[in-house]
């Protein structure tokens, strides 16, 4: 496929991400305004960080005037899951992909873009990744700005409906392979079960969500890798 085709196919796959980001960033903008951030600062934060959980956590740090070191440490904890995702994504880029492409692709490796990239068969082209980012990044920034400027621009019903767009994508990415492989189905079910336990059980629920994802990933992906190692070249598990 030509670079343009790769790019356009990415733009198309990025459209649901764009919809979801618009809703999530809009509510983020409302929250940013509430702690005293202006439209420019909030939009700048979204354009340079491109991460929802980290940005939300940042708001409470800014609101409580905590130190810059605490900010750095909090971001490290919440966003450390990207380290796992980027490691997995490194295997989706052809080994010959030059560093400058890797540096740009890395910037856009959000949970959702990672999800869509993982669902692709074989290697992905950096141009596909650029296509994936094309709508979501401006959408994330614009939605933030709109949320700060006018919290009532989008009706609550629409925001509520759009809020499941990103989860819908995650489900699309994990369920279809789970249907073909019992191992993946088991991995998905067990992950959700542990997630429920970590979310609601006393003590365990005090663990920040960023750490929760890492702990469960190490546990389940680690055990699955030991018990059901991926055999053939294509990486399929039957």
């Amino acid at each position: 496929m030509s670079r343009l085709k790769q790019y356009l196919s990415g733009v198309k796959d990025g459209f649901p991400i764009f919809l979801g980001y618009l809703a999530v960033s809009f509510t983020f903008g409302i929250a940013a305004k509430a702690v005293g951030l202006g439209g420019f600062e909030s939009a700048l934060m979204s354009a340079t960080n491109f991460t929802s959980a980290g940005q939300l956590a940042a708001l409470s740090i800014i609101a409580s005037s905590s130190g810059y070191v605490e900010m750095a440490f909090t971001q490290l904890i919440i966003n450390l899951r990207y380290c796992l995702m980027s490691s997995a994504l490194s295997q989706k880029l052809h080994p010959s992909t030059p560093t400058y492409h890797r540096l740009f692709v890395a910037f856009g490796n959000t949970d959702e873009i990672f999800a869509v990239s993982s669902a692709k068969e074989g290697y992905i082209s950096p141009f596909y990744s650029y296509g994936l980012m094309t709508l979501p990044l401006p959408g994330w920034t614009l939605g933030t700005l709109l949320g700060v400027l006018s919290g009532s621009l989008l009706p609550e019903r629409i925001i509520s409906a759009l809020s499941v767009a990103l989860y819908g994508m995650f489900i699309a990415v994990i369920i279809s392979p789970a249907r073909k492989s019992k191992v993946i189905a088991g991995v998905v079910l067990l992950s959700m079960l542990l997630s429920v336990i970590f979310t609601y059980l006393p003590v365990l629920r005090l663990i920040p969500s960023g750490f929760r994802i890492i702990i469960i990933t190490l546990l389940i992906a680690g055990s699955a890798a030991v018990i059901f190692p991926v055999d053939d070249e294509k990486g399929d598990v039957k």
Binding site: R81, L84, M85, S87, A88, Q91, D111, F114, A115, S118, F170, V173, I174, P177, A178, I184, V187, V188, L189, S191, M192, L194, S195, R212, I213, I216, T217, I220, A221, G222, A224, A225, F228, P229, V230, G235, V237
Partner: peptide, 14 residues
Amino acid sequence: KSFLYYVPFVTLAV
């Protein structure tokens, strides 16, 4: 290799 293969399924499900 196997661990990284399972990473997206676990992270997204969680």
